[in-house]
Design a protein around this nucleic acid. Structure first.
Lengths: 219, 219
DNA sequence: GTCTATACTTGGATAGAC
DNA sequence: GTCTATCCAAGTATAGAC
């Protein structure tokens, strides 16, 4: 791993930065399209158009690069989540935002990266722990969205937030796997619109949540 | 692939059968513990205590063996499902049986085999289609159980059986991934007891299902 | 600091022995 | 029909050039 980006040669680090960026991008794409088992040093390096050995210089190992790719996706998503939640006031609005953002995640392949890394963790000692850390943004976001939607609903007493959040994240991972398997995004899409219906139903039962207009954001 | 088990030498096929069985067992265990990426010919053969080349003689390729392992698990499960459903009369009983059977699947690692093969499908051309075929028992069983539980419930009109079945299977796969990741089976267990509560709630709303005693099987 | 050419290891597959 | 010894490709990693 290159350590010092010392004062006298900023141009040299430029080239390194470019290489690292290309590798992370290629690694992400490879994880999405070929999964963990298909993400070898040679395949990724070819895709990035760089020498295969650079992976070990810049990231120590293939797994190191894959974790960097997961980092990039996770951080980008955490930022996106923060932005999206900022403009929301009502519980129903939160549900709308959450479903559309999660749909975005599935579509763009962010969940595919997660799935690939989790399944890869089974074969690589110590990887599981590292991956677990990086799932925090997703879990936290799910918990926030659900917590907002559940309070004021009669279901709030029978459905603990943590359990529902766990179930939602699991549901996402599973939907991604099934979608990859048969190449059909249809069932997953159908579940999204269904989620909106159900959430509306729950809210209607609850009634007296503060600041609750009839309908918020579209779709 | 060995074709004819001809009349004159039944002893010879015995040895082959034994080898095949050992390989399938070892492949299953390896998929559960190491995932698809860790299921190499050498690792599996070592575990089975046989020469690595036998995999290619008996199953053509490593993937061929892994599919045979998936076949064995799928068929065993289909039988188990049939037995379990046979002794059930009420919708609530069906829900009880389904949850306890699915819990059994998670515990024994059957879902882990599924997860491993699905994630492996991303890296191996043509494998996805083969895996998809073999998931049929699970999907069908889920659909039957849900269909029985949903009719007579007011949710039946707003929740199509196919969608719920898809969601349940996805939920299973996702729970398995999360369980593998942090090694904690707790959240999944919690969701199972929660499922019982929810199903009971739905039934209570529906009321007039035919043959509906207060409570059926235990747990 | 960055990169390339090369060494070494593991994995898939088969020719030929029994 | 069953199995073993052997081959070749692909994968990871590093020594050394720039």
């Amino acid at each position: 791993m290159p350590v010092q980006a010392s004062t006298d040669s900023p141009l040299r680090t430029r080239r390194g930065d470019e290489t690292r960026k290309r590798l992370v991008t290629a690694a992400t794409a490879t994880l999405i399209e070929q999964g963990f088992a298909g993400a070898s040093a040679r395949v990724i390096a070819d895709r990035a158009g760089v020498n295969q050995g650079l992976i070990f210089y810049h990231f120590d190992s293939v797994v190191g690069l894959l974790l960097a790719a997961l980092d990039a996706v996770s951080e980008a998503r955490a930022v996106r989540y923060g932005e999206a939640v900022a403009g929301v006031t009502s519980p129903m609005g939160l549900v709308d935002v959450a479903t559309s953002i999660f749909e975005e995640d599935l579509e763009a392949g962010h969940v595919a990266v997660l799935v690939a890394m989790i399944s890869g963790a089974a074969s690589t000692p110590g990887l599981g722990e590292e991956v677990a850390k990086r799932i925090a943004p997703w879990t936290a976001f799910a918990r926030d969205a659900i917590s907002g939607a559940l309070e004021g609903s009669p279901m709030g007493s029978v459905l603990p937030v943590d359990e529902v959040a766990y179930a939602v994240v699991a549901l996402y991972l599973g939907m991604e796997m099934l979608t990859e398997l048969d190449g059909d995004r249809g069932p997953a899409e159908a579940l999204f619109s269904r989620a909106g219906t159900l959430a509306g139903l729950l809210m209607a039962f609850g009634g007296s949540a503060p600041g609750f207009p009839a309908a918020e954001a579209g779709s």
